[in-house]
């Protein structure tokens, strides 16, 4: 039952992403990519990942604001798409080869519904699930992983976020260039 719901939502995501890439107006393409993200958030909620669903929701709203800031002042929102024919054919052939290889690779994955930590007893998820409450005191195992077992990852994540926002501010500022012109 839940697989059918996931498949329907994934088909909606595919339709939304095709509309996003093929429409002429940039504002409507940004809104349709946000709808793709919200469908993804619903899927996360259905398959037992409420933390990811909440985070995805917040990130969607923030990225919608950022992308609208990028396009709202720009008067030229449509671009004539006359691509050279052979380049397009070559790229589509490359994507098709990639498609075939990916189809082969997916056949070797475990079936949907049996995660790999149940097949391999050495996997770290077993320990996190069995001893997570005893060792860290957190009821939510995801929280105990990101803040306790793998706290250095979270530190690195905060560093990357800080660095990227510093980079964006350094690119966008106009202050230094004015001083150089004097």
């Amino acid at each position: 039952m839940i697989e059918i719901i996931i498949i329907v939502l994934l088909i909606f995501m595919l339709i939304g992403s095709i509309i996003c890439l093929e429409t002429k107006d940039l504002l409507s393409s940004i809104i349709s990519i946000t709808s793709v993200g919200y469908f993804g958030s619903v899927i996360f909620l259905l398959i037992g990942a409420p933390d990811i669903a909440i985070t995805q929701m917040v990130v969607e709203v923030l990225s919608l604001i950022i992308l609208i800031r990028a396009t709202i002042r720009m008067d030229l929102t449509t671009i004539e798409e006359d691509r050279d024919f052979f380049g397009l054919i070559g790229t589509l052939a490359l994507i098709f080869v990639f498609f075939i290889l990916g189809m082969e690779a997916i056949r070797y994955l475990p079936k949907f519904g049996t995660p790999s930590f149940t097949l391999n007893l050495q996997a770290p998820s077993n320990r996190y699930l069995m001893n997570g409450l005893k060792e860290t005191g957190a009821v939510n195992i995801v929280t105990s992983i990101i803040l306790d077992y793998r706290g250095y990852d979270t530190l690195g994540e905060a560093t990357i976020l800080f660095t990227s926002i510093l980079g964006a501010l350094a690119i966008l500022r106009v202050y230094a260039r004015k001083r150089k012109e004097k």
Binding site: I47, P115, S125, L129, I146, D153, L161, S164, I171
Partner: peptide
């Protein structure tokens, strides 16, 4: 329970995606 390890790592990945997006838009 479902597997908690991919959830913890994807949580990191989503937030990093926001940072990358803001840099690209800049």
């Amino acid at each position: 329970a479902v597997d908690p390890l991919p959830q913890a790592l994807v949580l990191t990945s989503i937030v990093i995606g926001l940072g990358i997006l803001s840099l690209m838009v800049a």
